[in-house]
Design a protein around this nucleic acid. Structure first.
Length: 427
RNA sequence: GUGGGCGUAGCUCAGUUGGUUAGAGCGCUAGGUUGUGGUCCUAGAGGUCGCGGGUUCGAUCCCCGUCGCUCACCCCA
């Protein structure tokens, strides 16, 4: 700590990830990338900030996320930019800009920013894995996107995850339904929760998503969107549900599922972590957005995507008590050197070049201190070089897992080290 | 944006119904023992008790403000 200046901290609602937790992040990322790869996706990277219009047109001017949670700023050229609050809009903008051949399948890992009060599972900067498919409205792709997510959760050890699914129909279905719903809500206005009683007209669909008993009571008896979608939308939805059933993915029809971004139509879905008892138990979700490319100035192109919050995945894993390691990140070798000779530095470089994760102590510490460091490093073997070994051109190799305090250590010539180590690891 | 809880060593936390030099465990450093590590022993470093103001003879403890953390609401990943 400094004498005069208070130490800086990460901004509110953001966090640093250090080891050993960061190994979990590496593992999740590797597994997600592998899942995406198996489904034929390739990585897409887009800027974390975009013209404000991308999100205004994308997630919708009227959405809460756009109205009160955007990080908007002006650059020196007076351009109005925003940090991305979610992944889809930017990726679709990139699609419109570059017009890759379709179907275009892209996956990403990105930070997302929302200006809101942080709490468990909710941050100002969080991370999302996601995939998008542009250029087809084949229900098969809906099935595959959902299956990818399903398999990803399974691969990282989550078992108690429920898939909620609904269809929002297309634009015309929805506006017709809103009329019916509004009529119904008007008749039952005084039964709604305090929050929605006065303002439900502003966005009737939101009432469906209300978690309060009063609203649930009313809407559970009211008209359902799924019953008011057109035949085409219904057929599309049925194909999705049947497709999922055919590959053994269990679905829970959730007629009241309404997601927060305006661009969704037809298939919408959400993955809920049952073990994570919180209002933030939604670990991922997505849906179809067949009008979004047009909103962003492109040709009409169907699209569907899925996003999942990394922090919430980790909370869900914790809640389920999943302890399975995702990625082995342990040291192979720790070199103890009391001579400070460059011969040792060269030897270590050789071991690293041969593929062994190798660390060492610095600052010419005592043998005891270095042995202790080796022990705590988690390395499998310690390689010791003292004055005696240096003079003899040799190294002492010691198994740090054994309890015998070095009675079985072996000594090899420096030139034979890589071979000797390889031999030890194959045992 | 609104409301609750919290803020003491690197980490996890005690503690003082306000009273002289603020504690523990872990970690860290040095030394001893162990054939050169994991156990054990000894010693040591490290704290403006978040920050600012007030009450008081005296505040880490009480009051106010502020910043931060945390949890909840709205909404979302």
């Amino acid at each position: 700590m400094s004498d005069s200046v208070a130490p800086f901290q990460a901004p509110i609602g953001t966090h640093d990830v250090l080891g050993p937790e960061s190994a979990l992040w590496e593992g999740l990322t590797a597994i997600f990338a592998e899942c995406a790869y198996r489904y034929g996706f390739s990585l897409v990277m887009t800027p974390i900030f975009e013209d404000v219009g991308v999100f205004m047109r994308g997630i919708g001017e009227e959405s809460d996320v756009f109205k009160k949670e955007m990080y908007v700023f002006q650059d020196r050229g007076e351009r109005r930019y925003a940090l991305r609050p979610e992944g889809t809009a930017s990726v679709v903008r990139a699609f419109v800009q570059h017009q890759p051949t379709t179907p275009w399948k892209a996956w990403y890992l990105t930070p997302a920013f929302r200006y809101e009060r942080p709490q468990k599972g909710r941050y100002r900067q969080h991370y999302q894995f996601g995939v998008e498919v542009l250029g087809t409205d084949d229900p098969t792709v809906d099935v595959e996107v959902i299956a990818l997510a399903h398999n990803f959760y399974k691969a990282i050890g989550l078992e108690r995850v429920t898939l909620l699914i609904n269809s929002m129909g297309h634009k015309e279905c929805r506006s017709a339904y809103v009329v019916v719903l509004s009529q119904y809500l008007a008749e039952h206005e005084d039964e709604l929760c305090d929050e929605h009683r006065g303002i439900w007209r502003h966005n009737p669909l939101r009432v469906l998503d209300c978690k309060r008993d009063a609203c649930i009571e009313v809407t559970s008896k009211g008209p359902l969107l799924i019953d008011h979608i057109c035949d085409d939308c219904r057929a599309h939805f049925d194909r999705v549900v049947e497709g999922l059933a055919a590959i053994g993915v269990a679905t829970t029809l959730s007629p009241r599922l309404v997601r927060g971004f305006d661009y969704y139509n037809r298939t919408t879905f959400e993955f809920v972590a049952d073990a994570f008892d919180s209002a933030q138990n939604s670990i991922g979700g997505g849906g179809r957005y067949d009008q979004l490319t047009e909103e962003l100035g492109g040709k009409p192109t169907s699209g569907i995507g899925f996003g999942s919050g990394v922090e919430r995945i980790l909370l869900a894993r914790e809640a389920e008590g999943v302890t399975r390691e995702l990625l082995k990140r342990t040291l192979d070798l720790f070199v103890i050197d009391t001579t400070g000779d460059n011969v040792v530095t060269a030897m270590i470089e050789n071991l690293r070049a041969a593929g062994y994760a190798t660390d060492r102590a610095y600052d010419q510490r005592s043998m005891k201190a270095q042995m202790k460091a080796a022990d705590r490093s988690g390395a499998r073997f310690a390689l010791l070089v003292g004055p005696e070994e240096l003079a003899a051109g040799a190294v002492t190799i010691r198994d740090l897992r054994s309890q015998d305090f070095g009675q079985t250590q072996l000594r090899v010539d420096r030139g034979e080290i890589v071979a000797a180590v390889a031999n030890l690891f194959t045992k």
